[in-house]
Amino acid sequence: MTATDQSHAPEERAAVPMLDVRDLRVNYRGGGRTVPAVRGVSFTLDRGQTLGVAGESGSGKSTMALSLLRLLPSSAQVTGQVLFEGEDLLTAKWARLRAVRWSAASVVFQGAMSALNPVRTIGEQICEPILLHDKVGQKTARARAAELLDSVGLPSRRLGSYPHEFSGGQRQRIMIAMALACRPDLIIADEPTTALDVMVQAQVLNLLGELVRESGIGVIMISHDLSVLSHMCERLAVMYAGQVAEIGPSKQLITEPRHPYTRALGRAFPTIGDPASRLAPAGLPGDPPTPSELAKLNESRGCAFEPRCPEATDACRTETVELWPSGPGREAACLRVLEGSGA
């Protein structure tokens, strides 16, 4: 009896994932034209899972992440479904959305310097979401803020300090402390370490990794650095031109990428000691599509990566490309994948 109950419970949880994103599309409207930034992205994420989203600037990765909590400007038109605990956040009332932000899902933004208020102490800033969402007193909030600061490796006596009194790495840690303030189930980290030095980046990533392991939070981490993501996240989604080019377990995506773009991104960051990359930097000719090219892509058939693809064939220009299963738990949007499974 108990055994069946136990086996039943995770099944039910698996049936309704914490986050279920379905066919998410974002269009920016302005100047009489429409620019599609995200063109149909779907994925799921459960508690305790980590998903890395990689891509170049303009690939739509940040737009995608921010649209999940409707943090985009009003010029952005978002369609599709973002089911958080079964509830669609894209159609939810503002009051409901405000309740979800911070307490259920929070964001670690890219530039800690501009995301923190320079004229308020960090203690006040960490307390603010706690006071608003958890309906506790000033004193409890203060104590929680001190605890949080301590958990990110900063002395709690610095609660009265202002953002400019901290270094870049410390500010990024304060941002993480704030994101954890209301014990959320989901954290969206948008390039959390991009502006930091290697050593400080390692410290921050280490901290984030520990906190996730301890608390079982779900994490979506956005970065342009595939090697950082593969180290931090179990699963990886590579975005190109507003779509997912390949998604699957991180290790497999790095060691045996099925999409030529994943392969190129992986090679862009060399492994020191690998003779193949010594005095041989690997790049990818051409540039990612510009906004106007993206608008055209939306109307035409063919693979968005085809103009830069070293393995493109005639079929790549004419066939519609979508995500196809390319192995257990992974998918790739490349015609080659179909050839592979056919053989």
């Binding site: 090679r267 862009a268 790049g283 990818l284």
Partner: peptide, 14 residues
């Protein structure tokens, strides 16, 4: 620069 462009500029320097 973006990851895929990075390698192209380094190639140029070489």
């Amino acid at each position: 620069l973006d990851a895929s462009v990075r390698g192209e500029i380094l190639k140029l320097i070489l």
